[in-house]
Design a protein around this nucleic acid. Structure first.
Lengths: 144, 144
DNA sequence: CAAAGTAGTGGACAAAGTCCACCATTATGA
DNA sequence: TCATAATGGTGGACTTTGTCCACTACTTTG
């Protein structure tokens, strides 16, 4: 078991990382999108043809909230909806060319953001960072 | 330099950890406090006699926002302010007994929260987690 | 086929935070 | 030393982000 000091260190790390993620996530990268809006665009980008409900569920968002954001995106011509062939209640979401471009931008800049974060570290340190991230990811979120 | 896949993994980790911290930080531990309110209470708890501005700066909060929260705390008798002896504009903040108790509760439960998070890991895994956290903390936030 | 459930939307509201203006006081520099 | 700028603290007005509820249209289930 971890002792009190170690727990304190973890809490300190969590505060630091909360702050960092807050900055990273905040106003996302010169785009006019908020963090959640960005997630939605990327979700659709990487997985065309999703329905609003699927998007909401996968990103853990309120369906009403999601609906409003999608509507805004539609108005801004980032996406359009087509009726589902099998369920008349449901719709499929597709990015427009404009939406796709924005998604790509967002994706690239998110990568760049990580690179910028690590820019002052040596290649060895970057590797060390990466491995530590993988360790935590595996331990807490049991990926692969 | 890290390659594209590694960057992608880091971004995935960041999303996961954002979500985790969101849950940890959200409704803080049976107390009636929000995350920010909790931070303010703990900030004062660990560092009595701070001024509102110092609290705001240290936690990166708007001073107006901070002022309002402090006022609420004062009304709820969690703290009181005394005039600074050297600067008539300024005030020092002190927790009341009630405020101190709440801070202690918060502190304990924050520790407990971390323990709960790691409860399913073996002692070795917990140690591994701790070391990974320390690694990242050192690399990104250069603590000692 | 009746009843229950689901996709999607909108209204009303709340929480959290930002931005601006202001007063009182303090610090600065010509 | 005095005008000017800067700072601590507060409040009003507003925005952003999100929650909760209710409702319609359709679909699924027993």
């Amino acid at each position: 078991m971890l002792d009190r000091n170690e727990i304190t260190s973890i809490r300190s790390f969590n505060r630091n990382y909360t702050k960092l993620l807050g900055i990273l996530n905040k106003r996302v990268l010169d785009t006019p999108l908020s963090w959640t809006e960005g997630r939605i665009i990327l979700e659709i980008y990487f997985n065309q043809d999703k329905t609003p409900i699927e998007v909401a569920n996968h990103l853990n968002l309120d369906k009403s909230y999601t609906s409003r954001i999608l509507k805004r995106f539609e108005k801004n011509e980032l996406l359009y909806k087509s009726p589902s062939s099998t369920d008349l209640r449901s719709k499929k979401i597709h990015l427009t060319t404009k939406g796709t471009k924005l998604a790509q931008q967002l994706d690239e800049r998110s990568d760049q953001q990580i690179k910028d974060l690590l820019i002052n570290l040596s290649p060895q340190q970057q590797q060390e960072f990466y491995e530590a991230v993988e360790t935590i990811d595996k331990l807490l979120f049991n990926r692969k």
